[in-house]
């Protein structure tokens, strides 16, 4: 549904995007992940035809963004970083205007505006002025604006930034409900959001894609990989490190008198440790295999590239 290849963009002497390529299949939800200033918004603005690129090809819904911008714009719903609202208009008038921009007739407009308001939780808010809305409701109106023409492709730039947890959950539920019939790209720097929403993440930093894959793949790329969490009593760290197969132990502190350790080993050490504990070598309360958190994976991937650039 979205094909980007060899995209380059510079603002003056500063390169904003360097050879960015990725594809998004129909019905997929993909997160654009990266630190602030990484190039997420620039990429989205190019996808929507708001900005040009210096080099590269972009196809959205089968149309070239640069050659057939209008066909692309008709098929894309876009929520910019700040919801694009006219403070002096009411919710109903504004959404009607957005629908009219999309070329809908009067009857279709009133039907679609009603449906969309229902969908984003704005039912009954027609007459409120946009300027008087709270951040959460402004974001909802912004989403409604992107959805009103029921576009096959949705591009959402930080849809949950600045919202309270309940509002974030509301927007997330909405985005999840869109999957399937809509292809969604959303940008964020909040990792838990990716875990909650997107099976796939494209990590971008310094204008370059540094990782693209499922969250599991991303985690596996974190330095160190999987490790084992143990809580023990009656054994010192040095002894624990000397056990067969164990390579590195790192202390994680004590919880109610139990010592917590991070154990790294060549092969999974759990069975061996359990057997030793069962034999009375030490007392064992917890033994758990863990993958690195997405945060660790993210810092691993972004930090490495960040210093290289």
């Amino acid at each position: 549904m979205i094909e980007v290849s060899g995209l380059n963009k510079a603002y003056g002497p500063r390169a904003a995007l360097r050879d960015v390529s990725f594809t998004v299949a129909r019905g997929e939800i993909v997160a654009f992940l990266g630190p602030n200033g990484a190039g997420k918004t620039t990429t989205m603005r190019i996808l929507t035809g708001f900005l040009s690129a210096d080099a590269g090809d972009v196809k959205v819904a089968g149309f070239d963004v640069f050659d057939e911008p209008r066909a692309v714009r008709e098929r894309v719903g876009y929520l910019p970083e700040t919801p694009p609202l006219y403070p002096e208009l009411s919710v109903g008038v504004y959404l009607d205007f957005c629908a009219e921009l999309r070329g809908m007739g009067k009857a279709e407009r009133s039907r679609r505006v009603g449906e969309t308001m229902e969908r984003v939780g704005l039912a009954g808010w027609e007459r409120r002025l946009l300027g008087s809305l709270s951040k959460g409701y402004r974001q909802r109106v912004g989403l409604a604006q992107a959805l009103v023409h029921d576009p096959p492709v949705l591009i959402l730039d930080e849809p949950t930034s600045g919202l309270d947890p309940a509002q974030v959950a509301g927007i997330r539920d909405l985005v999840v409900s869109l999957a399937g019939d809509h292809t969604v790209i959303l940008s964020t720097h909040i990792l838990s959001e990716v875990e909650a929403l997107c099976p796939r993440a494209v990590v971008i930093t310094n204008g370059r894609i540094v990782a693209d894959g499922s969250l599991e793949e991303l985690r596996a790329r974190a330095p160190g990989g999987a490790w084992t969490y143990v809580e023990v009593q009656g054994i010192e760290g040095r002894q624990l490190g000397g056990l067969p197969g164990v390579q590195v132990v790192e202390p994680l502190g004590t919880v109610d008198g139990w010592e917590c350790w991070r154990v790294r080993a060549g092969a999974d050490p759990r069975e061996g440790l359990a057997a030793l504990a069962a034999g009375g070598a030490f007392r064992l309360r917890a033994l758990e295999r863990r993958l690195p958190s997405l945060e660790e994976a993210f810092i691993g991937v972004v930090g490495r590239e960040g210093t290289a650039a």
Binding site: R45, T48, G49, F50, R70, R73, E74, V76, Y78, P80, E81, T82, P83, P84, L85, Y86, P87, C98, L101, R102, G103, Q145
Partner: peptide, 14 residues
């Protein structure tokens, strides 16, 4: 300033 220009220019409006 409102960001609405971005919306207008990414809509099918010429």
């Amino acid at each position: 300033r409102q960001g609405t220009l971005e919306m207008l220019l990414t809509s099918p409006l010429s």
